[in-house]
Design a protein around this nucleic acid. Structure first.
Lengths: 218, 218
DNA sequence: CATTGTGAACTTATTCACAGCC
DNA sequence: GGCTGTGAATAAGTTCACAATG
């Protein structure tokens, strides 16, 4: 045996979610010139307990030094490796509407190692053109281009009624994971990862909190 | 006493989150012509157990009929009331870049009762113009217009370095809640609700799953 | 007889608290 | 003294299973 690292096979989703927050916060700390940090500093900035931060990291190994804390750049490296973002990921976009265009222009992707390689749209007016340096292809070429460009991740930004169909095409083309911006629950085969971003649902989380606050203190 | 409804003050965030999924799914069921549904149908479509669906709803009251299930339209009404979306909410956008423009054009908001009333940007080229029928104002008028238009919710779609400053202005202007699209953790006073949408973090959830799948079966 | 609503059992997640280390 | 890593204790969340119901 070579490693005492815990088995990362059954890590709760919530842990992974917090890991992405730790990573982001560490990158801000580094921008601010910090060399090291501690579980209590990280926790305080994100609203978690120090124990939570340590337990989360303990799922994957030992990254800190007792008495010292964590070296920011080492921990960034470690978390990127855990998340799989210690390399570039090749991404395709389907649906070049309002939101799709915004995604094509989003700087935050490349900052974290995601490269938007190709886009697809049903509208023949758009196919053949480039936006933000990314060529827009006809849907019929999806299979071909995903294989040729070795695309691993897909962004679905089409109208709700088309989202499942597009997803089926991406899955058939061998996609590894999908971020879905349409307000529908997608069916994907076991083994394909997906995550949904629904702006109305995000707002509803807020209205629940605000409405309840108003009810309590009118 | 008038009601046997449980106290909705301390409802877990995860429950509210699932509630927004139930609502969306019920609206799809209604579109498909369904009159009634059951906890098991709802659960199956969303990947939850039937007991989970019933327990979640039990936080707020009794909405079903034993032997029958739930009337879709009644349950939609009930959930909207719980979430506070049984009325219109007035929303402002700060930051009319790529993403901001996409938000201005997003149809999903009005579908759920959110009205984007006003937008703000630092760029004087943009102020005074309209996009998607929404006027873009200078940041200096934020206080004035939020009060005048009785805005309750804010969307922050500015560069990361500006997000906290904008948030402080929104809070000072009396905002109730914020959806933050910048990849930073915002500090808000207790009592202000916020939710963050970070596209890179969403992708990282996926890469974790895909990378681990690849590691397991190489 | 299919389905809800709900205590009880179980599972999972979080926090505590402290030994060991720098 | 300050900090990590972790077993033990606690809390929270989920599923079970069944009485009650239309």
């Amino acid at each position: 045996m070579s490693s005492s690292r815990p088995d990362p096979t059954h890590v709760p989703l919530a842990v992974v979610n917090r890991l992405t927050l730790y990573l982001r916060e560490l990158q801000h700390l580094i921008s601010d010139g910090e060399q090291t940090t501690s579980s209590s500093q990280l926790g305080r900035r994100l609203g978690f307990t120090d124990a939570q931060v340590r337990k989360d990291l303990a799922h994957f190994g030992h990254f800190g030094q007792p008495g010292i804390g964590y070296r920011c750049d080492d921990l960034v490296q470690a978390i990127r490796k855990i998340l799989g973002t210690d390399r570039e990921w090749r991404v395709a976009l389907v649906g070049v509407g309002n939101l799709g265009r915004a995604l094509l222009g989003y700087r935050g992707f490349s900052r974290q190692g995601f490269r938007l390689i190709a886009a697809f749209d049903i509208d023949q007016e758009k196919t053949g053109t480039k936006i933000e340096g990314v060529e827009i292809h006809a849907m019929s070429r999806l299979n071909e281009i995903l294989a040729q460009e070795r695309i691993e991740l897909g962004l679905v930004a089409v109208p709700p009624a088309d989202a499942q169909g597009v997803t089926d095409q991406l899955v058939a083309a061998g996609i590894g994971g999908i971020v879905n911006f349409a307000p529908v629950t997608l069916n994907v085969p076991e083994g394909i990862s997906k995550v949904g971003v629904d702006l109305a649902r995000e707002l509803e989380q807020i209205t629940f909190a605000v409405a309840n606050r108003l009810r309590e203190q009118p």
